[in-house]
């Protein structure tokens, strides 16, 4: 069991394999996650993620070859709904929080969400 401070650093020193998350990886993940990261942040994140994955590496001590991954926390069958329409007929309800809305020539909001042009 690891506790704050020294024992954590001790554990880190014991690690035989150190996995390094480099800046290129950080940029790639940031791109996948659609999060803009600054140059300095990229550096920091690379260091932090390397640290975190070093620490996570201890899971490899456990042989899990014959273990099924957990599929659900609750032991029950999946519930279902009947095929009835009783929701969703109110456009304003889902549009009212939109940060931007298109408008018609008179300035009345249209029932659409809007994003910068997607080039196809």
């Amino acid at each position: 069991m690891h506790i704050p401070g020294d024992s954590f650093r001790r554990l880190k020193n014991h690690l035989t394999r150190v996995k390094v998350v480099d800046k290129a990886t950080v940029l790639n993940i940031a791109k996948l996650a659609r999060i803009k990261v600054s140059e300095s942040e990229t550096e920091n994140l690379a260091g932090e993620l390397t640290n975190i994955f070093d620490w996570i590496e201890q899971l490899n001590e456990v042989n899990t070859d014959n273990v099924e991954p957990m599929t659900s926390v609750v032991a029950m069958a999946m519930p279902s709904r009947t095929d009835e329409v009783n929701d969703g007929a109110d456009a304003e309800r889902v549009l009212q929080n939109a940060p931007d809305r298109p408008a018609d020539a008179q300035g009345n909001p249209l029932a659409f969400y809007v994003v910068p042009k997607v080039v196809e």
Partner: peptide
């Protein structure tokens, strides 16, 4: 791996 650990 984590989901297997979760099972354990």
């Amino acid at each position: 791996k984590a989901m297997k650990l979760r099972t354990l």
